[in-house]
């Protein structure tokens, strides 16, 4: 299993407390290929696309429009 995780240092939370999941490009339970863009985070006028860390079944833990911070695990890939 691999976590779909927002990098710890992506933004300064003292200035911008949180971002949101702007979009999931696959549905929960979908099979996703490794390195495919699966989600999009929006924070401070930045679109941050997250690639699948591995191939497998996507399990979404933070839905679209959910609030996120650096280090948040927004989903996982089950092998």
């Amino acid at each position: 299993m691999a976590d779909v995780r927002i990098p710890d240092d992506l933004w300064d939370t003292s200035k911008t407390p949180e971002g949101i999941v702007a979009n999931w490009f696959y549905r929960d339970g979908s099979e996703v290929p490794a390195n495919e863009t699966i989600a999009e985070i929006m924070v401070e006028k930045t679109n941050y696309e997250i690639a699948a860390p591995a191939a497998g079944t996507l399990r979404i833990t933070v839905p679209k429009d959910g609030v996120v911070r650096p280090g948040t695990v927004i989903g996982r890939i089950e092998g």
Binding site: P7, A34, N35, T37, K45, T46, N47, Y48, E49, I50, A51, A52, P53
Partner: peptide
């Protein structure tokens, strides 16, 4: 003026 970004992570 305005600034904006687009990032794509890779493995």
């Amino acid at each position: 003026g305005g600034l904006a970004q687009h990032w794509r992570s890779t493995n």
